[in-house]
Design a protein around this nucleic acid. Structure first.
Lengths: 229, 229
DNA sequence: TCAATTCTTGACCACATGGTCAGCTTTATC
DNA sequence: GATAAAGCTGACCATGTGGTCAAGAATTGA
């Protein structure tokens, strides 16, 4: 009946926005947990505190709801995976990337898992994205990494495998959170843990690939901070 | 040895074994793709080339079938994740571990994905395993790594995060194969690719954590070489 | 005020789900 | 060859699925 949370709520489409948000959030969790097929609209509706018919009213169909969630997650990624240039400081770029990736896993764990579930299922809805947009993204970054290697700013490792290494090791803390918690015997990963993990990953990747800061014109000789040889 | 093609086959329980194998293999794929809820016995039966009733006849229930698959995968893992001692050569051990893990991802991709799907879903069937057997396994290895660090054989990094790093970066090539293929534009990852990836991961981890061979009778020329096993 | 629009939802549908069962056929054993 | 055991499976069931719909309730705009 009368929701009457904020009767003074007046912006156009306020009801729609509120309900859609509730549905999207609920659906993200359920889809992440059970996959596309395993998720049921009944459960999503229940989590959102609405009757099933209402979910269909707003979202049209299960498929549309799912696609919308995937697109929302892609948007979040795009907001973070900005472009880099060969002139950038490799240490900075790699560190920032790892840090951003971990934070995204933390701020949107359900979305990360949703994505993982979609890939596990063979990416029926994301084939195009993988082979198009994302592939291009990877290739661009790989090209920059190769230039860095050529200039001696890092070891000549295959950039694509390096990107996958960063991707997987950061993604892990969202997708496999259950495993991490179970094994470490914790109930949550707090900010402190995450910071520690971030530092660890940055350290290992930087050192492991021999990534160096560019020798700036004015900089005194040899400032190797994190890594040691 | 005896394969199942001829009707003249007659070790005790040969029929049962053959059909169960067919069902298990089919089920592993379907569960991996769609998760526990999303998988249907109909599809499993179809993949196995049997009527649905027959699947139930052999497996009892969907749940039993699923649990059995999980247990089979745990067994495979146990066969590889053998124990280590502080006296072992760290470089050897880490290299062998990474290599074995990659090979398991390759030899049993569906099983790996099945496991991933179970974890993604919150590990409803594997909570005990994670908090018991596996946790113990990790803690034992972590203890050894700490001793290595104390003896200066590696940097004093947190061993648990290191284990997760290895775990996630190797697991990735099974669980997210679709993504890897899509992005790299390949249709399969052949043995050569896998070997390259293995070498890369070993190199980065060994170098990144400053893992050294114990000072033995002779020290080989310092440039890192990948261990073989 | 009053009509147009948006929202809400229970009843309903065709179909798929996991699981049971009874009766059949095949295989194993003596 | 007889009998027991194992294997097989279509018909069937209760329940759950995604989705439709119509009719009413609430909100909006003039």
């Amino acid at each position: 009946m009368a929701k009457a949370d904020f009767p003074r709520e007046q912006e156009a489409g306020a009801i729609r926005r509120r309900n859609e948000q509730a549905i999207l959030q609920a659906a993200e969790g359920v889809f992440a947990r059970h996959g596309y097929r395993g998720a049921s609209l009944q459960e999503i509706a229940h989590q959102a505190g609405l009757p099933k018919s209402n979910v269909l009213y707003y979202m049209g169909s299960k498929r549309k709801l799912y696609v919308r969630l995937l697109e929302r997650m892609m948007t979040r990624w795009n907001a973070i995976l900005d472009s880099i240039s060969p002139e950038d400081d490799p240490v900075e770029v790699i560190s920032a990337f790892i840090r951003a990736k971990i934070q995204l896993s933390r701020s949107h764990p359900a979305g990360s898992r949703l994505f993982a579930s979609e890939i596990l299922g063979g990416a029926p809805f994301l084939q195009d994205y993988l082979q198009g947009e994302l592939r291009e993204w990877v290739e661009n970054r790989a090209a920059v990494l190769r230039q860095w290697a050529a200039r001696g700013l890092m070891d000549p490792v295959d950039p694509v495998w390096l990107i996958f290494l960063i991707w997987s090791s950061t993604q892990h803390y969202a997708d496999f959170e259950t495993q991490v918690l179970g094994i470490t015997g914790r109930t949550t990963l707090d900010d402190e843990d995450l910071e520690e993990i971030t530092q660890f990953l940055i350290r290992v990747v930087i050192k492991g690939c021999g990534i160096k800061r560019p020798a700036a014109v004015e900089t005194p000789p040899d400032t190797l901070q994190t890594a040691e040889r």
